[in-house]
Amino acid sequence: MNITQHPDLLDRLAASYALGTLRGGARRRFETLAREHATVRAAALVWQTRWSGLTELQPAIDPAPAVWTRIDNLVQADKAAAAMQAARVPPAAAAPGGWWRNLLVWRGAAAAGAIATLAAVVVGVQVNGGLRATTGAQIATLQQQLQATPQIQYVAVLADDKADASMLVTFDPKNNQLVLQRVGGFQEGADKSLQLWALPPGQGPRSLGVLGHDKLLKLVAQEGDVKEVPTLAISLEPLGGVPSETGPTGPVLFKGELIQRML
């Protein structure tokens, strides 16, 4: 089944992929589709942006001092037991390369693994307890953020000539805003500017704005500026950009198809 023809399914898969709950063969198939279809890449990038903002809601929680005390007690007890065991080993059996020494090494490794597992469980219990204590406030804050989440109607992944994604572009009709997020490593020089262009069919390029040097960029735009525009492009221009009527004067670095999403 071609998931690009099923927006609801694609949206759910992209959300699971970005969250990390899509695993195994399903995750590998999704990554294969993402390499082949700009629509799938765009959906994944949109959800990665959404989930990354939610991590700011959860404050850092330090485990209780008693947790570290218990872990230290277990480690010290294991060291004492290992020392006592080593003291009982006959001199002949303690020779380098002896089977008893190898056995002790494996037992020590097993004990260390058990201690690490116990520590993870104890810390996890402590953290979960802290999370439950703040659940009400966190849910309320999360609901407010979700209500304020932009309604993304158009999305584009702009890539270079090697098909490497460099810019994620979304349009929010509610706020009349184009949001551009750098997802590649390109950074223009201090004396240069990136300029965003709409490439409507049968017409010349139309400038949508000059981009700053920040990783997240926002431009004011109307829906008419992006509606019925199949392609967006970014060119490298002199500092401050060039007038719209001249069209791009520098090289076009990134280009991508603008796709309308179901709200």
Rank of each mutant, 00 (worst) to 15 (best):
S207F: 02
L239A: 15
Y154L: 06
G209Y: 01
G204V: 02
V155L: 13
R206D: 05
V125I: 09
A148D: 13
Q195T: 07
L232P: 09
Q144V: 01
Q181S: 06
K162P: 00
A221Q: 02
V123E: 08
N175R: 15
S235I: 06
A140T: 03
V183M: 08
V179K: 13
L216W: 01
T141W: 06
E223S: 08
L216Q: 06
L146M: 12
L217T: 02
P201R: 12
S207L: 06
A190M: 07
L239H: 10
T135L: 10
V210T: 14
Q145N: 11
G202T: 13
Y154G: 04
V220G: 04
N175H: 14
T134Q: 15
Y154E: 08
L168K: 00
I152Y: 03
Q138Y: 02
G212E: 07
K174V: 14
W197L: 03
A163L: 11
P201T: 09
N128K: 05
P201Y: 08
S166A: 08
L180C: 11
V179R: 15
P205A: 12
P238S: 11
G185T: 13
E223F: 00
G130H: 09
L158N: 01
V229M: 12
Y154K: 00
Q151P: 04
D160V: 06
K192R: 14
A140K: 12
Q143H: 14
K162Q: 10
L146W: 10
Y154D: 07
L146R: 12
P201I: 10
N175W: 07
L194K: 00
L194F: 02
F186W: 15
D164S: 15
S235R: 06
K215A: 09
L219P: 03
E228L: 10
I152R: 05
L236M: 08
P200V: 11
A190E: 14
D160C: 04
Q126A: 03
N175T: 15
A133Y: 09
T141V: 09
D191H: 01
I139H: 12
T149Q: 15
Q153M: 14
G185I: 04
L168F: 01
V155R: 15
G184D: 14
